[in-house]
Design a protein around this nucleic acid. Sequence first.
DNA 1: TGGTTCCGGTTTTTT
DNA 2: ACCGGAACCA
Length: 880
Amino acid sequence: MILTQLGKYKINAWLGGGQFGDVYLAWDTILEREFAIKVARMREQDIVMLKDEAKLLASLNHPNIVRFFNIDIIEGKLVLVMEYIKGKSLRDMLTKGKLPCDKAIHYMVQMLDAIHYAHTRGVIHRDLKPENILITSDDTVKITDFGLGKFVREGSLSASIAGTPIYMAPEAWRGKFYQQSDIYSAGVIFYEMLTGKPAFLGDSLDDIREKIFNSYPPKVTIFNPKVPAHIDKVIRKAIDKDPEARFNTADEFKSAILSPGRKTGVAVEVVKSPTEVFEEEITLTPQQEEIINSDAPQILVLGGPGTGKTVTLIYRVAKLLREGEDPGSFLIVGFTRRAVDDMRTRLEHIIGKELRNLVIDTVHTLAYRILKHDGKRLGFKEDFSIINAWHVLRSIAKGEELSRLEAMLERIELYKANLISPERAKQLARSEWDHECAEIYDKYQRALKDKQMMDLSDLIYYSVQVLREPDIGTHYRDIYKWVFADELQDLTPAQYELIKLLAGGNIFFTGDENQSIYSWRGGMHRFRQRVERDFPQVKVYLLTNNFRIPKKILNAAQTLVSKIEGETHPSISLRETEGKIELQSYENESEEAWQVGAQIEELVKKHGFKFSDIAIIYRINAISSVFENTLSSFNIPYMLVEGETFYARREIKRCIKFLERLTTGSYQGMVDFIMWVLMLPKTYKKCFGIKNKQIMLKGELPNTLDKEKLTSYLERFNTILREPSQFGVSEILEIVLIDSGFVPKLKVAQEISDINRAYNLEELINAARSFGSGEIREFLNHIALLEELQVAQWGKDTVKLLTAHQAKGLEFKVVFLVSLTDDIFPLMRATLDPDELDEERRLFYVALTRATEHVYLSYPRLRYTRKMKPSRFLFELAGL
DNA sequence: TGGTTCCGGTTTTTT
DNA sequence: ACCGGAACCA
């Protein structure tokens, strides 16, 4: 039925529809004016006429609220008469993804003004959602449908669907509405404006409800690093489950957004990925489109850095998902945790929903899961532990010289990376050294298995063994119809084999032989032949358009790798800027560091770069110290991207050790641990003793200690020691780190390093919370696989100091590639072996191609008193 | 035997 | 400062 006339209203156009009803553009034939009228799609008996309420609504008059004129029942239909606004709804704007941060804030401020105005007049909106927020062409916000929910009879079908659940506060689900319920909805809308993703998503209503009641969405800054750090906290407060804990008024909410300053402590943003790919709409090239839409079941995509390999991979996955392929039949493997998290975020962004059944993981995580499930076939129980190879190796090869032991460990890793069993290693041994290594390897593997332990490379090695069992392999291959692996050049043969064994039909690989920088630990840098041999039907595509790297830099980098024998596939820069690449030599190291500092200062002060646009990249960690010192004397904020994994940090190690002790029941070091969390000086050590796995106080306690408080805390601590398994991991960590006062005290400490420790520990607690319930042992394994939580703080505006290896996969506007002498880059020992020299060359290539605008190359002429030769790679670069 | 204290030795080029 | 293992004690 098409409406043309409704009472005195002539219907001119349909403006939109929603759950409540349809909105029409109408002409009042009596007043001769345009109105928007909303005709409710509901039965008359479900409508309550609240005269006073209608009057109240009609009295609202605010620039950011759609004027409400009248409510009427015409021909048995509820009709709402409102001001007609030309504009789009926020919902329409959000379908194109997130809004720029300043725009989102601009809208938010107007919304909160409107909400505050209504609240002071006693009107609660009750159903704030993007559909109800109109935006005119001059970016004025107009909120519509204020308080209309009230006209629907409680308990009617319409009432129960009136609210849009994903924007509804938890208490609103129970039918309670406060002003804070609007604040909550505004917070959730703000979240969506900034990220382009709803804060709560789920497959079903129950699923959503569960999340709204029990969880908080990831931080905004994870999806959009450009958002100022304080916004995360503001949103978190606005959407607290407890209405009391939210902002009291919309005005308070507004000022919190606008004034980031009034806070104590140091704001550390936790941003897992520095990528800002979502900023622009991605335009795909015809080359990429061809790959994405290819019918070939087996695909290999080759292309240099910045040619969009990963994007192509993701868009192909997205395309297949849109065509209705089951997310559960996909397996996507990435090289690092960061790469994996990045891919998932991008993919979910494109698809617009969470993809929980879809497996995107690092090879190690994948392997861990396989072995937990099927490791029993090899004699491993479900609760095997992941350990650090070094300690065990040392204990079984006592008396070995450390340098030899180190070499042996390297050899063992290579055996496993190439799927060579201890028996085979013995057969292959030619020299005395080979025999020794093979012997130790055998011993080491037996020792680990005895203790139900595995190191990281065992995860891969044993998974391959398990998957070679026909029944198990078939089982997985039946599941994974679509297998994708990124960065093939850095995978070891064992990892590649693992992926192959899982692939049940279609494969999609990407890689770049020129970016292979891990062959020293088994990465197979010549992967193309191998893929073509294993998959004779494979279709090979080349990506030759470069989106990231400007011409000059790209040319220099490509000239460098063209010296390497073998195939290269150069790309052509699509960037408009030429780019800049400069070489400087300096008297010595400190002069070099000083000049770099001066240039950074100038780039920031005169040329508008941010510190976070800049990276200093070097070959080895030892180089960093000169630069650290100089940067601090320049007052340039910097961040050292440590080689240390999160897991290796002192405070984290200590906690992990503690958890480990809980699982083994050997409580050595407990007294030290509890003194550490209670921040007691060592002198009090004699006051504590351990008896029957319980910490006791003994002897005279100094007056400085509050005996009662201490005793009651020890009581709690001891309950953990008695029955660790009664507690969840996060519970244990909370009692030990937070309730002890440790983290709270660290947070307000003077030292930045203490504050950072506090954040690291909080990060650990978060990891435990999101890990959920599970054995302590399992949590420890889980942590061991999270290689790089350390990238917390990426969002801070600091210059990054990092090695060329660490720089892989990152990009910066300005790169200072420093200390380019012929003994450091390439490393002296690599110059003797042509293969190793090539790897150094590729590493140099990787470092150069991190830059999207400027590259500054430099080297010191003297190191200490020794004369240095410039890196041979400098001579190879074009135009220098 | 299990629990506690004492003693001595400490990986780096790149994950 | 920290950890593993030997030595020592109930």
